[in-house]
Design a protein around this nucleic acid. Structure first.
Length: 300
DNA sequence: CGAATTTGACCACT
DNA sequence: AGTGGTCAAATTCG
């Protein structure tokens, strides 16, 4: 297969240019932010966020250019005019080169009895019948994938359990700024049973990330967001999280699955259950995930 | 009419 | 070669 076809090179070049333009705009924003005489925490948070995005743009550009170079080397040639006019007719259905290599990004999975809202805007981009599974798997990406280079994705699939549960697997984390603060848990078919499972881990345990990792509560589409209680607002040292007020019992319900148990009392990965209740209990819960981000302390 | 979803095709990965 | 993830044209929705 000719992986460095004109169509691919042209597409890669366009992507690389887009990434660089975006990086330049972000750098300008960063300059403006840093130019402000005051700003305190907001200023440093905004600056860090912009820096992260700029780095992301550069990383993506390098990745695109590296890919192209590797292709050219493997083909034993170095194309001069890579942006030649492409064959419009064949390009219509020819998507060679338009797919990104799958990343071995960190993932975490949540199983819920109903579709719930994690406060982010998702766009469905695919659905797939999975072998030996009764229900198809749905693929979502962040709505701000293109305007804010947010790489977060998730997959949602109904399990074959009885009653049916929804398994949501998150890939990557949000870098966009459009967290809908009215985040809520919504119950669709089974409003009395709102227990859920949350587990998290990495696909590649040999590498560690220090990126924000823990996203307590999930998502559904806007049309589901009506009949919900307001959520408690919990502040961690790095970000804001929303927790449903009804959640009163957290307990470990499975063996820890992470590989970092030997780091003192750090719990880097585990399985917890959370049961909804209408009564309020005095209870503390501490989840440590220091290897990935901050320590979260939920107090009810 | 723009945004979101559906769906078949393409491609990466094993 | 089989399977699952992503793309993008077509279609639907608001």
């Amino acid at each position: 297969m000719d992986s460095s076809s004109p169509e691919k090179i042209s597409g890669d070049r366009r992507k690389a240019v887009q990434e660089l333009i975006q990086g330049r705009e972000l750098a300008n924003q960063l300059r403006l932010v840093l130019g402000k005489p005051f700003g305190g925490v907001d200023k440093s948070v905004a600056a860090e966020d912009l820096a992260k995005k700029i780095l992301g743009s550069f990383t993506e550009t390098i990745s695109i250019l590296n890919r192209r170079t590797a292709d050219e080397v493997s083909d034993g040639r170095m194309s001069e005019d890579s942006d030649e006019i492409t064959s419009k007719t064949s390009a219509l259905k020819d998507r060679r080169g338009c797919y990104k290599r799958r990343k071995t990004s960190q993932t975490w999975t949540r199983i819920t009895p109903s579709l719930v809202d994690d406060g982010y805007a998702w766009r469905k981009y695919g659905q797939k019948v999975i072998l030996n599974a009764k229900h198809p798997r749905n693929y979502y990406r962040c709505t701000h994938k293109f305007d804010q280079s947010c790489q977060a994705t998730k997959q949602v699939q109904m399990t074959e359990d009885e009653p049916a549960m929804y398994r949501t697997t998150y890939h990557g984390h949000h870098t966009c700024k459009n967290l809908l603060k009215a985040s809520q848990i919504i119950l669709d078919s089974n409003p009395r049973d709102s227990s859920f499972l949350l587990s998290f881990g990495t696909e590649n345990t040999s590498t560690k990330s220090h990126e924000p990792y823990f996203q307590p509560f999930p998502c559904i589409k806007q049309e589901y967001r009506d009949e919900k209680p307001c959520l408690n607002h919990i502040q961690s040292s790095s970000d804001d999280y929303f927790v449903p007020p009804d959640l009163t019992v957290f307990e470990s319900c499975g063996p820890l699955t992470g590989s970092d148990h030997d780091h003192g009392d750090v719990i880097s990965s585990g399985v917890y259950s959370c049961t909804a209740s209408t009564t309020s209990l005095d209870m503390d819960m501490v989840v440590g995930a220091v290897d990935f981000c901050d320590v979260f302390e939920f107090e009810f």
